[in-house]
């Protein structure tokens, strides 16, 4: 085994997990799907003294519809969402879940863990930030709900206290006439995307009533491309309008050059991804079934 030695604790309930972490202190971490944490442990980049395993807590993995929203248990695996007919009610969610890394990662990784990790390259935050998403949390002083946009503070930083965890993710089902899409470009299946784009549009006839556009992997957190949204809102979605929005998205991106691509290429990718995501979103808003897929090198 490659990590430094640590104490392993298995929590029986969410409440117990929270109290364990409180007692164990700063050297303790929650273990959800482990798809970020375990690679960090392996490389000894993260060296917690204690791990509190959430994987054996009953009732934390579910997908249900209730009062106009989909509810996901925090420990729901990406693969469960990928294969859920219910989750397809919000096509962006299926797009996102089906394209995360590879099958092995999707079988273990969880939606709650992904949000709590707040990796700037994570898929879920970017997809969900275009929707009305509420994160349900539980800490020593009880439960609370936080809007996703307030939940994500910075790269790898959330509103969660050290001994607080995500219990559920609630996503409001968009109204009739709304359509969305999530697209990411990956150099190979298992790796984080070079850039991603999430779009959610509400149409009235040909006119865009509302638009939400978010960009992933091109900043410290998912970026809402507000100027791109403005370019669409109140306009009919001609190729020219879409191109204007995509160019506005290019300006909103703030990428770094790394092995996933040069900054200038990532900006170009943002343009292409936003454009295509808008096109898919429009078709879906009109009631068409469109299979979205991540793009591979």
């Amino acid at each position: 085994m490659y990590p430094r030695s640590f104490h392993y604790h298995r929590a029986g309930s969410l409440e117990e997990a929270v109290s364990m972490l409180g007692q164990l202190g700063e050297g303790a971490k929650f273990l959800a799907g482990g798809q970020s944490l375990i690679p960090l442990l392996k490389l000894r980049f993260a060296n917690p003294e204690h791990l509190v395993d959430l994987n054996f807590i009953p009732g934390t993995s579910f997908i249900k519809e209730d009062s106009g929203a989909l509810h996901f248990g925090a420990m729901t695996r990406h693969a469960e969402i990928e294969h859920s007919a219910l989750a397809r009610k919000i096509p962006v969610l299926h797009d996102c879940a089906a394209g995360i890394a590879d099958v092995q990662v999707r079988n273990r990784g969880t939606i709650g863990g992904s949000l709590a990790e707040a990796d700037p390259s994570g898929d879920w935050t970017n997809a969900l930030i275009t929707l009305d998403t509420i994160v349900h949390c539980l800490g020593p002083s009880g439960a609370r709900t936080i809007q996703l946009r307030d939940f994500i503070k910075d790269a790898y930083t959330t509103a969660l206290a050290h001994d607080e965890l995500v219990t559920e993710v609630e996503v409001k089902i968009p109204p009739q006439g709304s359509g969305g899409a999530y697209l990411a470009f990956k150099r190979s299946a298992p790796v984080y995307p070079s850039a991603s784009a999430a779009v959610q549009l509400t149409l009235a006839g040909d006119v865009c009533q509302d638009a939400a556009i978010a960009l992933g992997c091109v900043g410290l957190t998912a970026i809402r491309a507000t100027e791109a949204e403005t370019a669409l809102r109140g306009n009919s979605l001609s190729d020219k309008t879409i191109a204007t929005a995509a160019e506005a998205a290019r300006a909103a991106a703030d990428p770094q050059t790394d092995m996933r691509g040069s900054a200038e290429y990532k900006r170009q990718l943002v343009v292409a991804l936003v454009k295509r995501a808008i096109q898919i979103a429009v078709r879906r808003a009109r009631g068409e079934q469109v299979e979205g897929a991540h793009l591979y090198a």
């Binding site: 590879d102 150099r187 190979s188 299946a189 298992p190 790796v191 984080y192 092995m259 591979y296």
Partner: peptide, 16 residues
């Protein structure tokens, strides 16, 4: 070396 992990070196997979 900037490509010391598979995430950076991206060896070809069946998807590609």
């Amino acid at each position: 070396m900037l490509t010391s992990t598979f995430s950076d070196y991206t060896p070809i997979t069946s998807m590609n």
